[in-house]
Amino acid sequence: MEQSPIDLPPVQKAVGSPVKALFNYEKVSIVADEDYLDKVKSGDPLKLQYYDGALRIFGNYLGKIVTMDGGVYHAQEISFHTPSEHKINGERFPMEMQILHVGKTVGDTAKHLILSFVFKKVPGVYNRFIDSLDFFNLPNPLDKYRDLEKELFLPNIFFTTKEEGKLI
C-alpha cells in the first residue's frame, strides 16, 4: 500500500464492485450547531478559511460514510488543493477537493478517510457546489475568513451547468 498522494491508474483499470460503502450527505446549515475543536463555535457561521496553506471548511458534521465493515466516519473538513495532489494515469488536475472524514466507531477513532474529487477546467461549465462557495471572493493569507452564504450540499458536486456563449 502506498502513502497518499499517489498516481492512480486510469479509470479503465478500475475493478468494479457491487459492494459499496454507504455515503450520506445532507444539507449542512451555514450556522454551526456544534463546536468543532477550536475552529468552529456553535452558533457561528461556517467559514471558508485560509488555513495551513489551503482553503478549508471545518465543521463538526458535514456528512458521513459507513464502510463495509461498519466503521462510521464523519466528514469534518473540506480542503481545496491547486493543483491536485493525486494524479490519474500520470495526469495532474487543476484542482482537487478533499473531504476529510474522521473515524467515530470503536476501533476507528484514530483513522481518517479521505474522499477526493479532481476537477478539470472546461470553459463555460460551472459546478453547482463550487458556485455555492462564492469563488470570486476567496480568503487569502491576509484576509483569512469568509462566512459561507449558502448551505452546503456536497452531492451538488455531481451537477454542472453549461453556459453557451452569447453575441452581444
Partner: peptide, 12 residues
C-alpha cells in the same frame, strides 16, 4: 492510517 477513495468528476 489514511484510507483514500478517489472519485473522478469530469464535469465537462
Amino acid at each position: 492510517l489514511i484510507a483514500l477513495i478517489t472519485l473522478i468528476s469530469f464535469f465537462c
